[in-house]
Simulated scan of single mutants.
Amino acid sequence: MDNLLTLLIDGLNYASWLFIVALGLTLVFGVLKILNIAHGSFYALGAYAAASFVGWAASMKFAPWLSLVAMLLAAVTVAVAIAPVIERGLLRFFYGRDEVLLVLVTYALFLVMEDLTKLIWGANPYFVSEPYGLFGSVDLGRMSYVGYDFALVGLAVVSGLATWWALNRTRQGKIVLAVIHSAEMASSMGINVSRVYTLAFGAGVFLAAVAGAFTAPMISVQPWVSVGVVVLSFAVVIIGGLGSIEGAAIGALLVGLARSVAVHVAPSSELFVIYAVMAIVLVFRPEGLFQRIQARKI
């Protein structure tokens, strides 16, 4: 029983941060119709920025709980500083072009941002230990778990619900949904589609940076940390269906639990199991589990 509980908690913990990353990726695809290969780089920037902000807060002898605020501010800083520059200065020139060209452009952006992080933070790993002990430990049965892991699951739930509420219960969200359905029709009705693109891309970058910032205490922040993240997040959105929040949640849970089972039963098959799940879903549902219904153009 304890082993099963450990397996479930490990799976949920892994799925939580992966869902936040995939949520940003699927939001960007839903609005901008871009498969953003550079999405993992925003995760890495969030992690590096969090390491710097938390380190500065520790050097200033601030209260330990303020390290959580520092991580959130790091994610906001990345989104505000990076998203408008990339979307307005680069991506907007390729809207409506061939999908392969957009993939190549975002892949080139990914390589540039990887070198940029190494130029700013160097090649040595960073460790963010301060926030990890803030939530103490949680005893379940005979096992003790780190409280921070449960806090991360809560953050994923809040992120998903907040995104769903913003899209479905606010005026700006309805505008975004109109652009998702048809950018041309939305533009003809007076909606500033260009601004919606900028805001949606900024929200996607923010979600990736939040995931990076709040997983920084759990990992070693080092170059190329973004590679595995972008591959796994693509697996999640492919399983769940591109552009679907519900699909991103289910896809993250499937990937997290599959990885947890593999790690506990056959560690060498960790990556194989994740891609096997994706392959099985694609065989029976090539469009993903929750692909949105698309209007047929005549």
Rank of each mutant, 00 (worst) to 15 (best):
F201H: 01
L207G: 05
R92I: 13
I219P: 02
A123L: 13
R97W: 00
A216R: 08
A295N: 07
M113I: 11
G240Y: 04
H264G: 12
F93I: 09
A200R: 02
L167C: 08
T77Y: 08
A258Q: 00
F150E: 10
L161N: 12
A22R: 03
S187I: 11
F53E: 05
V265C: 01
Q222T: 13
A203T: 10
L207H: 05
V100T: 15
Y148N: 10
G288A: 11
F272E: 04
V31F: 01
L282S: 06
S52H: 03
I20E: 03
G251S: 06
V283D: 00
A162E: 13
V230L: 05
A183H: 08
G136T: 14
A235P: 02
P223S: 04
M185G: 12
A47L: 08
A15K: 00
F110G: 04
S129H: 06
A213S: 15
E130C: 00
T198R: 01
A75S: 15
L254H: 06
A22Q: 06
G96K: 06
L18R: 07
Y14T: 11
A75P: 10
V176E: 05
V112F: 07
M60W: 07
R171V: 14
V231Q: 10
V263I: 14
L27M: 09
S159Q: 13
A203N: 01
G133V: 14
G243Q: 03
L104G: 04
A108F: 07
E246D: 02
L116S: 13
I239C: 04
Y107G: 06
V78A: 06
M278Q: 03
W65V: 15
G122W: 04
A178Y: 00
V230Y: 02
V227K: 01
L102T: 12
G160I: 04
T26V: 05
L282V: 09
T106Y: 06
V176S: 05
Y145K: 09
D2K: 12
I9E: 00
V28E: 00
V103F: 12
